[in-house]
Computed example of a mutant assay.
Amino acid sequence: MTSGQTHPDPLRVDGRLVRRLLAGRFPQWSQLPVERFPSGGTVNAMYRLGDDMVVRLPLVEGGAGDVRAEREWLPRLSPLLPTAVPEVLGTSEPAAGYPWPWSVYRWLPGELPEAGALTEPALLAGDLAGFVRAMRAVTLRGAPAAYRGGPLATLDEATRAAIEELRGLPEEGVDCDALIAVWEDALRAPEWAGPPVWLHADLMPGNLLVTDGRLSSVIDFGCMGVGDPACDLFPAWNLLPAGARELFREALDVDEATWRRGRARALSQAVIALPDHRDTNPAMAGNARHVVRAVLAETR
Results as ranks from 00 to 15, higher is better:
V132A: 05
G243E: 11
R68T: 10
M284E: 10
G90S: 07
I219S: 15
R71I: 07
E111L: 08
L59M: 13
G130E: 14
T258W: 01
Y105F: 06
G262H: 04
L112A: 13
G130P: 07
R160W: 00
A266Q: 09
V43Y: 08
A257W: 11
R261S: 11
L59H: 12
D185L: 05
R12H: 05
R141W: 00
D276R: 04
E256V: 12
E165R: 11
A84T: 13
P58Q: 01
G150I: 02
L81K: 14
C223F: 03
G40K: 13
V182I: 08
E164V: 09
L11D: 06
F26D: 15
A297H: 09
C231N: 05
Y98E: 05
T2G: 15
V13M: 01
D202T: 01
A69S: 09
L74S: 04
G24K: 12
E35A: 15
T154D: 04
A257H: 03
R56Q: 01
Q269L: 11
V254F: 06
V85H: 11
G62S: 07
V174C: 12
A125H: 15
T258E: 09
T91E: 05
F131C: 10
G15S: 04
N44A: 13
R214K: 05
A178D: 02
G90Q: 03
A189Y: 05
R48F: 04
P8V: 01
G206F: 00
A242Q: 12
E61L: 02
A236T: 13
G168R: 11
P79Y: 04
E191G: 03
A186Y: 00
G126V: 04
L239A: 02
L239D: 00
R36W: 01
L267P: 07
L123M: 12
P38W: 00
G243T: 11
V43K: 14
D228R: 11
S217D: 10
L240H: 05
A137V: 07
L108H: 08
E171W: 07
I180E: 04
R56A: 14
E72P: 14
T299F: 08
L124I: 13
W192C: 06
A178W: 03
R16S: 15
V13S: 09
P190D: 08
P8A: 01
G63A: 03
L209Q: 10
P101I: 09
L118H: 14
G41N: 07
Q31N: 07
A69D: 09
D14I: 01
A288F: 02
E157D: 03
P205Y: 02
V18C: 14
P94I: 04
V132K: 12
A117R: 10
G286W: 00
D228W: 00
A129K: 10
G110H: 06
W198G: 12
G90F: 08
G213N: 11
A270E: 01
A270L: 08
G206W: 10
E61W: 00
P144G: 05
D177Q: 11
W192L: 00
A146L: 00
G41I: 03
G50S: 11
V295S: 10
V34P: 03
E111K: 12
T211P: 07
P196N: 03
E35P: 02
L208K: 12
A189S: 14
P38Q: 03
E93W: 04
R36A: 15
V197T: 12
R260T: 09
A96T: 14
M1R: 05
D156A: 13
L17P: 11
R136E: 13
